[in-house]
């Protein structure tokens, strides 16, 4: 039997009496790549925050690697690239290396400093995302796509088993977005990483992921991408409401 990396049972969450998540059940097994889609305000980010322990669910249960989620705690087994990652202070004086190293700080603990082993991990993570030539560059001076890679490296440096990405390609140009998905596919196929990608880009679902979940307060679909492609119009009409024009550009 495959290990359940994420297990969500009957999850409910509301903001000021407004239900945002209504009875979500979802399981993600080790080695899977799940694409989570849904319209704006569908509760995608809320779901991620519950999974990360930043928000406490009203009802229901979330288990990560079989353990119930209590506190927010990354490092170790979970890596996270947030939506806000590319809206950081562009004038911040830090190199790619320094930013990636900060992914290890929580794990290192208060009194331990970066040693040779830690810097080696930093170099490896930077190499994995193909930024070795840019390690000593200022992060604010890189392109949006390169910055996104640097944040992936920061998430990867602690060697997680699960990588969660919340709309990581917002504001990144089309070509970089494509390279970005290629990187995710590579991490998934060759490094066996379990991935949860929140996106509004339906096109990516047919090429990269092996599981699709469609969310709008409730889960409207959870299955493989082929089935999703066949029933795409029906599912999206249900989840997004009628009359909504679905913009779906496919990546090749």
């Amino acid at each position: 039997m495959k290990e359940h990396v994420i297990e969500i049972k009957n999850l409910h969450f509301s903001y000021e009496e407004q239900p945002v998540l209504d009875g979500i059940n979802l399981v993600l097994d080790r080695g899977q790549f799940l694409g989570l889609v849904g319209p704006n305000g569908s509760g995608k980010s809320t779901l991620i925050k519950c999974v990360l322990g930043m928000l406490k669910p009203e009802r229901g249960e979330i288990r990560l690697f079989g353990q119930p989620v209590r506190h927010a705690r990354l490092g170790g087994r979970i890596g996270y690239v947030s939506q806000k990652a590319n809206s950081f202070n562009l004038g911040f004086p830090a190199t790619v290396k320094e930013v990636v190293a900060s992914g290890l700080y929580g794990q290192l603990g208060l009194l331990r400093r970066m040693g040779r082993l830690e810097w080696k991990k930093v170099d490896q993570a930077i190499a994995k995302v193909g930024l070795s030539a840019f390690r000593d560059r200022n992060i604010g001076k890189l392109s949006g796509g390169q910055q996104q890679r640097a944040f992936i490296a920061r998430a990867l440096v602690a060697d997680p088993d699960l990588l969660i990405l919340d709309e990581p390609t917002v504001g990144v140009d089309a070509k970089s977005t494509e390279q970005f998905y290629a990187l995710l596919t590579e991490l998934h196929r060759h490094h066996g990483l379990t991935l949860l990608l929140v996106t509004h880009d339906i096109g990516v679902l047919s090429t990269s992921v092996d599981q699709v979940a469609c969310l709008n307060k409730r889960l409207f679909f959870h299955g493989d991408p082929d089935e999703f492609a066949q029933r795409e119009q029906e599912i999206l009409t249900q989840a997004y409401g009628h009359d909504i024009q679905i913009v779906s550009h496919h990546h090749h």
Binding site: R73, S82, A94, S102, Y105, G106, Q107, R154
Partner: peptide
């Protein structure tokens, strides 16, 4: 450094 660069991420890493 971690808190100054990205407070949310720093908090999530403990």
């Amino acid at each position: 450094f971690a808190l100054s660069f990205d407070e949310e991420h720093a908090v999530l890493t403990g």
